[in-house]
Write a protein that binds this DNA or RNA. Structure first.
Length: 451
DNA sequence: TGGGGTTAT
DNA sequence: ATAACCC
């Protein structure tokens, strides 16, 4: 789409470096961000919705909407009544069940993992990929007499010119080409559109991905990084500085990125602790050395529902409903959770974030039955959860809850028996026959945990 | 604000 | 177990 032609054929710019070669620890990171993800999934499920203003509803909120709806004034997290008032033609679909979104989300991550295994998920609709190694490989392969080989893909932030003699520019340019290939693959294989940002770290990649908005990509060159971070109007827009930290910074008179850059490090460390202080002050300069951490399979599964609950019977019914869904999910995953947690939210007029939880190990005899028929496990699990419930809520007194959530965590890969341990030789699937598929286990009555 | 997730303390 | 962060 845009600029940058290859240099003169004679002296390859790739090997004519301004910056020393491999010594540079500079990275190439891409941030990919699907456009209004839930709405896209809904339009794929039901193509008749395409072209119409569409909102995805959870309870009384429009949590996201397509661009048709945005043009008509609907915003994310808008009240349904306000949205309908702004846009009476708005079509609403219920998005409280995340199953299809979650499935599509993992298809995206898996597609990206084919490019490079270093993929970090952020929510259901964003991914970071560390492209550094891929870019190095393409640079080695590059016999640069073909002019299209060094053309940037997509936008360049601030329209900054690319210097083909600067190896950092070249590497990022290659990154932009890979990002374009990723977006093409997402569209061709999954029918999804999204934005991408390419930069030298996660913070900058994430900030720059949102510059050109639906279905476009932007490359940030190092010389423009200060302009990018100073384009933020307030420190609350900095990823990594959340609600609480923003309030504490404002109390110190810090509201702009420049304020944070120039504020006394010593005082900041005393106010926020050395860890947070040093991290966010680096962020204010656009510095972020946090690695792209491969997410792998999820660390936890949870199901929640916000609703009014003031009796033990209501709680039990909801817990059974949440648990049934969770058991299906955990069954599909193949791993087994070893811990279960119950989370509640109590009704209280003030108090911003109030949630309480109790957790306990899942009894081993229940864990064993988890793989196959989840029928026997329902009743004992509900019993465990109701004990946790009564531990938090005095059911002899009136109570008023507004949310219940059940979480499975501490997931282990079937069994963690290691070679040389007694478990190893007592576990049929390990010491003797194949350990091929996740459907092949049937160690029905082996109570390994009893050792 | 929903219905999820993560890591650090 | 909670608190902070992210979507």
């Amino acid at each position: 789409m845009e600029q940058a032609e290859a240099g003169a054929a004679g002296s390859s710019p790739v090997h004519d470096q301004v910056v020393p070669a491999g010594s540079s620890s500079s990275r190439v990171i891409v941030h990919l961000d699907l456009d209004c993800f839930y709405a896209q999934v809904e339009m794929i499920s039901n193509p008749e919705l395409k072209g119409k203003p569409l909102g995805v509803q959870q309870k009384y909120l429009v949590v996201t909407c397509n661009y048709e709806a945005r043009k008509l004034g609907v915003k994310k997290l808008m009240n349904v009544r306000d949205a309908k008032e702004k846009c009476p033609q708005l079509v609403l679909v219920n998005g409280e069940d995340l199953t299809r979104y979650r499935e599509m989300s993992y298809k995206v991550t898996e597609l990206l993992e084919e490019f490079s295994p270093i993929v970090e998920r952020l929510g259901l609709d964003e991914n970071f990929v560390d492209l550094t190694e891929m870019v190095e490989k393409r640079l080695e392969q590059l016999q640069s007499d073909e002019p299209s080989a060094l053309t940037v893909s997509g936008h360049v932030y601030d329209n900054q010119p690319i210097n083909l003699h600067d190896i950092l520019h070249i590497r990022l340019l290659i990154g932009s080409q890979i990002a374009a290939e990723m977006r093409e693959a997402m569209y061709n294989q999954l029918g999804l559109t999204g934005c991408a940002g390419v930069a030298s770290n996660k913070l900058l990649a994430k900030l720059v991905s949102g510059i050109f908005k639906p279905n476009q990509q932007t490359l940030l060159l190092p010389e423009s990084s200060q302009d990018l971070i100073h384009s933020l109007n307030h420190i609350k827009e900095m990823p990594g500085i959340g609600y609480k930290t923003t309030k504490r910074l404002e109390a110190l008179g810090i509201s702009s990125v420049h304020d944070l850059q120039t504020f006394s490090s010593k005082i900041l460390e005393k106010e926020l602790g050395i860890s947070v202080a040093q991290r966010i002050q680096k962020l204010s300069f656009g510095e972020d050395n946090s690695p792209v951490t491969p997410s792998g399979p999820p660390q936890s599964f949870s199901e929640e529902d916000s609703f009014k609950c003031s009796s033990e019977v209501e709680a039990k019914n909801k817990i059974e409903e949440l648990l049934a869904s969770l058991l299906n999910r955990v069954c599909q995953d193949g791993r087994k959770p070893h811990t279960i947690r119950l989370i509640i939210r109590r009704y209280s007029s003030e108090k911003h974030y109030n949630r309480e939880s109790r957790q306990c190990p899942i009894p081993s005899h229940i864990i064993q039955k988890l793989g196959i028929g989840n029928y026997d496990v329902m009743t004992p699990m509900v019993d465990v959860l109701m004990k946790l419930f009564r531990n938090m809520v005095n059911v002899k007194m009136p109570f008023h809850l507004t949310l219940l959530s059940v979480c499975f965590c501490n997931l282990k890969a079937l069994n963690t028996a290691k070679k040389g341990t007694i478990d190893y030789y007592l576990t049929p699937s390990l010491s003797t026959t194949s350990r091929s598929g996740k459907h092949s286990f049937k160690m029905k009555d082996t109570h390994m945990e009893d050792f």
